[in-house]
Measured scan of single mutants.
Amino acid sequence: NLRWTSEAKTKLKNIPFFARSQAKARIEQLARQAEQDIVTPELVEQARLEFG
């Protein structure tokens, strides 16, 4: 299971509600691909840039 830093959680809250669950799934996918067990603000930002 993935842990989220408080900064990453804050960044996730800045994503519009309607896109948040999809973004969260993508962020967690990116973390797993990078073999990380902690979601960082950088991963959230990477996903945000993908979504535009």
Rank of each mutant, 00 (worst) to 15 (best):
E45R: 05
T5F: 02
A8S: 04
K13Q: 13
I15M: 06
N14V: 06
L2D: 01
R3A: 10
Q33P: 01
L2A: 03
K11I: 13
T5W: 01
T40R: 04
E45I: 06
E35S: 13
A25S: 09
G52T: 14
K9D: 04
L12Q: 00
T5Q: 04
L12M: 08
S21C: 09
A34L: 15
A25D: 09
A31N: 00
L49A: 10
Q36W: 10
A23G: 02
Q46Y: 09
N14D: 15
A31Q: 01
A8Y: 00
T10G: 08
A8L: 01
L2C: 03
F51C: 06
A31M: 03
I27D: 00
L49Y: 08
Q29A: 12
E28Q: 03
P16D: 04
R26H: 12
E35T: 07
K11C: 07
L12W: 08
E45F: 05
A19M: 15
R3Y: 14
K24Q: 05
E50T: 09
K11G: 07
N14T: 14
F18I: 09
E28L: 04
K24I: 15
V39T: 00
V44I: 07
F51R: 04
R48P: 02
A47Q: 03
A31E: 00
I27V: 11
S6H: 14
P41C: 05
F17G: 09
L43K: 02
V44T: 01
Q36N: 06
E50M: 12
E50C: 08
T5I: 03
D37K: 12
I38H: 07
T40W: 04
F18E: 10
E42V: 05
K11A: 14
T40S: 05
E7G: 11
A19W: 15
L43V: 05
P41K: 11
F17C: 09
L12E: 01
S21G: 11
E45K: 05
N14S: 12
Q33F: 09
A19I: 15
D37G: 08
R32F: 09
E28H: 03
R3W: 08
L12S: 01
Q22A: 13
E42T: 05
F18V: 08
Q33N: 10
Q22P: 04
T40D: 02
Q46K: 12
G52S: 15
R20K: 04
Q22F: 12
N1P: 15
V39N: 00
I27W: 02
T5P: 02
R32Q: 07
L2I: 13
K13W: 11
E42A: 08
E35R: 14
E42D: 13
K11M: 15
N14W: 09
Q29K: 09
G52H: 13
K24P: 01
V44W: 03
S21A: 15
Q46I: 13
L2E: 02
K11F: 08
T5C: 03
F17D: 06
W4C: 00
R26G: 02
K24L: 10
S6F: 10
E42G: 05
W4S: 00
E7F: 03
E42M: 07
V44A: 02
E50K: 07
K9L: 14
Q29C: 06
L30R: 04
L12D: 00
L49E: 08
V39P: 00
T10N: 14
A34P: 00
L49N: 10
L2K: 02
K13H: 10
P41A: 15
K24H: 05
Q33H: 08
V44R: 00
E28K: 02
E7D: 08
A34Q: 14
R32K: 10
Q33T: 09
E35I: 05
S6Y: 11
L30C: 03
K24T: 06
K13I: 06
N14K: 14
T40E: 03
W4Y: 02
W4N: 01
T40N: 03
Q29I: 08
S21T: 10
F51W: 12
A19L: 15
S21K: 14
R3H: 09
F18D: 07
P41G: 13
L49Q: 10
N1S: 14
N1H: 13
T10H: 13
Q33C: 08
A8N: 01
K9W: 14
R32E: 06
Q22I: 12
K24F: 09
N14C: 11
K13V: 05
W4H: 00
E7R: 08
E50L: 11
L12N: 01
L12I: 04
A47E: 05
W4P: 00
N14I: 07
V44Y: 03
T40C: 03
P41Q: 08
I15T: 03
Q22H: 09
L43Y: 05
R20D: 02
K11Q: 12
A34N: 13
I15G: 02
K13G: 09
T40Q: 03
G52R: 09
R48M: 15
N14P: 01
E42Q: 09
R48F: 15
E42K: 05
L43W: 04
E45V: 06
L2Y: 04
I27R: 01
P16C: 06
T40H: 03
E45A: 08
R20I: 05
V44D: 00
T40Y: 06
K11L: 14
Q22D: 09
F51K: 05
F51H: 05
E50G: 07
T10V: 12
A47P: 01
L49M: 11
K9H: 07
A25V: 11
F18Y: 14
V44M: 06
V39Q: 00
Q36E: 07
W4E: 01
E7L: 08
V44G: 00
L2P: 08
E50W: 09
I38T: 09
L43Q: 03
P41D: 07
R3V: 14
F18H: 15
L12R: 01
L49H: 09
E50S: 08
A23V: 15
Q22G: 08
Q29T: 08
K24C: 05
R20Y: 04
A25W: 10
R26P: 01
Q22T: 12
R32H: 08
A34K: 13
S6M: 08
E7H: 05
T10E: 15
L30I: 08
Q46S: 07
A23L: 15
E28W: 02
V39M: 01
Q33D: 12
Q22N: 09
E42H: 05
F18R: 10
L49W: 10
A19F: 15
I15H: 02
T40M: 04
E35F: 14
E7N: 05
V39R: 00
A8K: 00
F17I: 06
A25L: 12
T40I: 03
K9N: 06
K13C: 11
Q22K: 14
D37M: 13
N1M: 13
L49V: 10
W4L: 00
E45Q: 07
S21R: 13
K24E: 05
E28V: 05
N14E: 15
N1D: 12
Q46N: 05
P16Y: 05
A34I: 09
I15C: 03
S21I: 11
K24S: 04
F17K: 14
T10W: 10
K24A: 07
Q46W: 10
L30Y: 08
F18C: 08
A34R: 14
L30E: 02
P16Q: 03
A47W: 15
R48S: 11
L2H: 02
K24Y: 07
N1L: 12
E42P: 03
F17E: 11
W4F: 01
A25Y: 11
F51E: 04
A23H: 08
G52D: 11
W4T: 00
R26W: 14
A31T: 06
R3Q: 11
L30M: 10
